[in-house]
Design a protein around this nucleic acid. Structure first.
Length: 551
RNA sequence: GCGCCUGUAGCUCAGUUGGAUAGAGCAUCAGCCUUCUAAGCUGAGGGUCAAUGGUUCGAGUCCAUUCAGGCGUACCA
């Protein structure tokens, strides 16, 4: 689909005018002014040039405007204002053409071909199968879902990936914990390992084994069945939880394949050859202290096992070798330091990290009116993501986790998310969609909903400020998508949808859509409603919530 | 101690990559339903953008220092 973007159009005509005046300019911005009286878009090029040219920016702006050649069916007015802004006023006719565009592109309105033909890899969740997803994981789960969508909407072909480790100490402890619970089914006072995994799920796993095998494994603590059953059970439950969000990872990447395929050996050898590692006290260390890190870090323990850093580095190199154009990782802030070590390791091994972007999100606290919900892995009372979903509902959970910028420490108000009222921000958006659906249901006598794709209405009837304001906002959707996608910040879409819903509600409040006495006006407004519904729905798709027909 | 993140209205948070008069929701107060969904709309009050200094035409945004909170700072992952 062709992107007929007003911002790009303005940039093009400005560039031509600048060139004809002989100005060279590194960068200038095309913004949407906060105040409507300053027009629809403003350009700061004249101010950027002012210090260099040592001339009044308003004069420079006037000079640029004098050279501008533009289509006056699109732009109705251009003015100089303030310190030297060039303000563009877009014609109503242009916005009406956007309405037709929305009706034509439908579910694809807002998608861009900016990254067409490129591939992206998004890795997130990546919880090891030692336990279930707790509520805190939810932020990453939901954020990743929305970011994967954003990447797709900007044209990338996205591989959704999950990295896990089913070997090592943690899995041994899991196995021992299950064994202990299993033994407690036979002799109730069997001791539980002090560092063991608590939580009801361990007992569930033990029961499954006991039901299948009886007490046949009572002296076989090391039987592989304990570990395998636990892993299978945990992964099953994790995938089930992800399934509730409709998340399906394309690749589950097992860390052990890096051992069997020899990636780790090759990497270790490379570090050694390039004199980036050394042996001390039986362990292998990576030289990092001279590179701005606090100290050198162990990459192979004295036991011969690698620490997490080495396979993490090898894993990322593996991703680079698979040829992705863009690699995105999402980690919690508890990994805030380690990713830098990993990126350093990748560079030390001779690979570029410029196409790797790491998103670090801060932690979440859950609150109800009664208490602040604690989430300790050591505690029996873990607040699981499944619990949160059944408390708050799937849409509210997705919405609340995506609502805020990743860098903020999120307060998740469970009571608010659960509340089915006007206090709950997710309903404000969904209600706008449901309202439109209600209108369209009632529109049968004017125009049947199936016919709405054909733009045969009299668009000159759309002319009041509520209608035009709504159209203006609808026209910005593709731009918002590409901005949010570039920044990998889905919360921007929520902010945008809020403005969209607000504009619709205002339009609805002041304007009767279905008017039996004026079918032509009704028809035109129905098309506008349909376009608003389409934009809301597309936005909901991106952030990952449903678009209810009724509420 | 050191590193990263955060500090904006009573509360939860936006702030379009340095732009024009500081924004929303909730909460508080005052209005609007015999008419397509009132889960809505309209209005009011509420701010030393943590503090100080700096950079420039211009700073909530960038830099430095200080204060406060979160997360790290393992031969755990």
């Amino acid at each position: 689909m062709k992107e007929e973007n007003m911002i790009e159009y303005i940039r093009t005509i400005i560039d031509i005018a600048l060139a004809s005046l002989g100005y060279t300019i590194k960068e200038y911005k095309i913004d949407k002014p906060k105040n409507e009286s300053f027009g629809d878009f403003s350009v700061n090029a004249a101010m950027s040039l002012a210090s260099e040219l040592k001339e009044n920016p308003r004069n420079i702006a006037a000079g640029i405007i004098g050279r501008l050649e533009y289509d006056n069916t699109k732009i109705s007015k251009i003015t100089v204002a303030g310190a030297g802004f060039i303000n563009f006023f877009i014609s109503d006719d242009y916005y009406k053409s956007v309405l037709i565009k929305i009706l034509e592109e439908k579910d694809n309105y807002g998608r861009s071909c900016l990254n067409e033909g490129k591939t992206a890899n998004l890795e997130w969740v990546s919880a090891n199968p030692t336990g279930l997803l707790h509520a805190g994981h939810g932020r990453q789960v939901c954020l990743g879902k929305a970011i994967a969508n954003l990447l797709e909407w900007s044209g990338y072909e996205v591989t959704r990936e999950y990295y896990y480790n089913d070997a090592g100490n943690q899995m041994n402890m899991l196995s021992k914990s299950v064994y202990a619970r299993y033994m407690q089914l036979i002799t109730p006072d069997f001791p539980f390992p002090p560092d063991g995994y608590h939580g009801e799920y361990i007992k569930e796993i033990a029961k499954i084994i006991f039901n299948n095998k009886g007490d046949a494994l009572k002296d076989k603590e090391d039987d592989i069945l304990f570990r395998e059953t636990a892993e299978q059970y945990n992964f099953g439950r994790i995938k089930e939880t992800l399934g509730k969000f409709n998340i399906k990872h394309d690749v589950f990447f097992n860390e052990t394949s890096l051992y069997s395929q020899g990636d780790l050996k090759v990497l270790l050898e490379k570090f050694r050859e390039n004199n980036l590692s050394y042996e001390k006290e039986g362990a292998v260390w990576l030289k990092m202290e001279d590179e701005g890190f606090e100290k050198d870090k162990v990459i192979v323990k004295s036991t011969g096992e690698p620490t997490y850093r080495l396979p993490d580095i090898a894993y990322h190199i593996n991703k680079i070798k698979r040829g992705f154009d863009f690699i995105v990782d999402i980690f919690g802030s508890d990994h805030g330091d380690t990713y830098k070590e990993v990126l350093f390791g990748i560079r030390a091994a001779g690979y570029s990290t410029e196409n790797i972007k790491v998103i670090i999100h801060q932690m979440v606290t859950f609150k109800t009116a009664a208490e602040s919900v604690k989430m300790s892995k050591r505690s029996d009372k873990v607040y699981l993501l499944d619990d949160l979903i059944s408390d708050a509902g799937i849409d509210a959970t997705q919405f609340f986790f995506v609502m805020r910028a990743p860098g903020t420490q999120l307060d998740f108000d469970i009571d608010l998310a659960r509340e089915q009222s006007d206090k709950n921000p997710v309903y404000y958006l969904q209600y706008a969609h449901a309202r439109i659906c209600g209108i369209l249901r009632n529109a049968g006598e004017i125009i049947s909903p199936e016919k709405i794709c054909a733009p045969d209405f009299r668009y000159e009837l759309i002319n009041n400020s509520d209608e035009i304001d709504l159209l203006k906002i609808l026209s910005l959707f593709p731009h918002e998508i590409s901005e949010a996608s570039y920044a990998l910040e889905p919360h921007r879409i929520i902010n945008y949808l809020n403005r969209t819903a607000e504009a619709f509600h205002k339009f609805y409040h002041n304007n009767r859509v279905i008017d039996a006495g004026n079918s032509e006006l009704s028809k035109a407004r129905l098309y506008l409603c349909y376009a608003a519904k389409q934009v809301l729905k597309n936005g909901f798709d991106v952030i990952g919530i449903s678009a209810p027909e009724r509420m």
